[in-house]
């Protein structure tokens, strides 16, 4: 998956799972959309399904500092590259 494809998938997850439509790629999701730690855990599960992989504890913990859509796309791109 290239970056655009990942972005499309992530936005679809946000629309369906979190009812957040087309968020600004650089806005703070917590401040703008009440996206919280419970949502982050839910998102990690969706990312595992998206990449058909199991994330390590360290990989999951590294996601906890993510705040924006662009950061999520970077995170998923790195995970995908590491598994390529």
């Amino acid at each position: 998956m290239n970056r655009d494809e990942i972005l499309t998938k992530i936005l679809a997850i946000f629309a369906v799972n979190f009812e957040i439509e087309n968020p600004d790629p650089d806005e703070n999701l917590g401040e703008a959309h009440e996206f919280d730690s419970i949502d982050a855990i839910e998102l990690i599960r969706e990312i595992e399904l998206l990449l058909d992989t199991t994330l390590t504890r360290q990989e999951k913990e590294s996601a906890m500092g993510i705040r924006t859509i662009n950061q999520i796309v970077d995170y998923v791109s790195d995970l995908a590259a590491a598994r390529a």
């Binding site: 419970i38 855990i41 839910e42 599960r45 595992e48 399904l49 199991t54």
Partner: peptide, 12 residues
């Protein structure tokens, strides 16, 4: 097998 159907909020 990975129990991914169990949601993060299912306990809550």
């Amino acid at each position: 097998a990975r129990l991914t159907s169990i949601g993060a909020v299912d306990y809550l």
